[in-house]
Design a binder for these strands. Sequence first.
RNA 1: GGCGCGAUGGCAGAGUGGUCAUGCAGCGGACUGCAACUCCGUUAACGCCGGUUCGAUUCCGACUCGCGCCUCCA
Length: 468
Amino acid sequence: MLQIYNTLTKQKAPFTPLVEGRINMYVCGITVYDYCHIGHARVMVCFDVITRYLRSRGWDVNYIRNITDVDDKIIKRASENSESVEQLTERMIDAMHEDEDALAVLRPSQEPKATAHIDEIIALISTLVEKGFAYPASNGDVYYRVEKFAEYGKLTNQNVEELRSGSRVEVEEAKESPLDFVLWKAVKPGEVSWESPWGAGRPGWHIECSAMSKCCLGDTFDIHGGGPDLPFPHHENEIAQSEAANGCTYANYWMHAGPVRVNSEKMSKSLGNFFTIRDVLEKYNPEVVRFFLARVHYRSYIDYSEDSLKEARVMLERFYQALNGVAECEFSSEDAANAGINDFEQRFIDAMDDDFNTPKAISILFEMVNELNKFKKTSNASAAAVAHKIAELGCVLGILQQSPDAFLKGDDKEGELSAGDIEVLIQQRVTAKANKDYAESDRIRDELVAQGIILKDSREGTSWFRGS
RNA sequence: GGCGCGAUGGCAGAGUGGUCAUGCAGCGGACUGCAACUCCGUUAACGCCGGUUCGAUUCCGACUCGCGCCUCCA
């Protein structure tokens, strides 16, 4: 039984879909004015794992993740770069897709862009104005009338009185109340704009998600997800807009990924302490980065550091060392059953059904590794069966899909010994060993270790891998 | 100030009202020329104070400390 923690109710609850077997999920995506950072990567990987798992269990998942391609920051950056808004956003969308591909993040079912849904946005604002939940102001903007929506604050337990007294928002003269937020921004000179009943302008941030989710998934859908800083105000405002306009529940389950920290501080644009995905991929294997993100529960914070990336690397090495050298071997379902596969798989499913408990699921994979290592000495069929299942369950997490050799040996990089160089040195060492010249053979091994190359002697000969 | 979250062995990180998390590191063995890989065995933890209970790391309350949101941010 799938259980999901719901931010709205602050507890885990059994998941019940609106339509049997189908899951409609909307996740807030990226504002494309810069390269994605590792915090974005966390949200991408988190909902990718969730989608992969749900699909592996037979759910028909319709996963929508929007792209915000017009807003203040985009306009500012494009102007700084002396390029058009479209040029900037197209570049950043391409870069985002490259980053995702590297991290083995599957594309969402749809990636709607705000600028492609201006009509729907205007229609939604019109409805809100008609129903009295929004008003055009003297400055040309259209605002949402927060105090008109009785349930405002229900996602994050805010009460309007407290919000008003603690308000840090700059007071805009044209607003009826400082809590009101903008739905439509009047155009300023030189900015991109669209015509509307309230004059030329562009959508505010929150309204695009209400409009696009309605367009792609309808008035009510199953799961709404996003990053750790979105519950307030963004998701609170989405609820206010959509529920006021549509007159029904917006999303049944709210899921939020935890933050990425650097030196115990949140990684964020405003603090400037962020690492882009492409920066990190310069130094680490993409699978290591993905595993670093997937190995902690999705709601917990995660600390970014050299050590934690290295630890992820070491853990993956254990998986690939085990998968390495498993004899290609036919195995029957009986072999698999005897190897205990069914029990492991069920425990993996139980872990993932419990609010996507990836750390627990991974611990079960490690138990399987231990069995595999033992079977490698005793039974080819059992070993093959376990190895096959480890890879299959790994695929659900988006890991362990490379050949062990490819992961362990890595690609030849500039400044590092090539595979060819290494083979030559190994041959020299084999000769030295044959002559019992251990001083020489150890010298060669030390030389390789200094380059990060670890040797492994076995009955079949010497193999090597790039250590961490 | 308002609303939330967290505190687990040397580190990372799950979980549970009373017998194993898991990975790394450590220790003792096996294997090895010596290592590495692997295997066998093993050490070691539940912030503080009360309460409930036969029994609490796990439930309840207070406290201390840390963190997030309340301003654009995943």
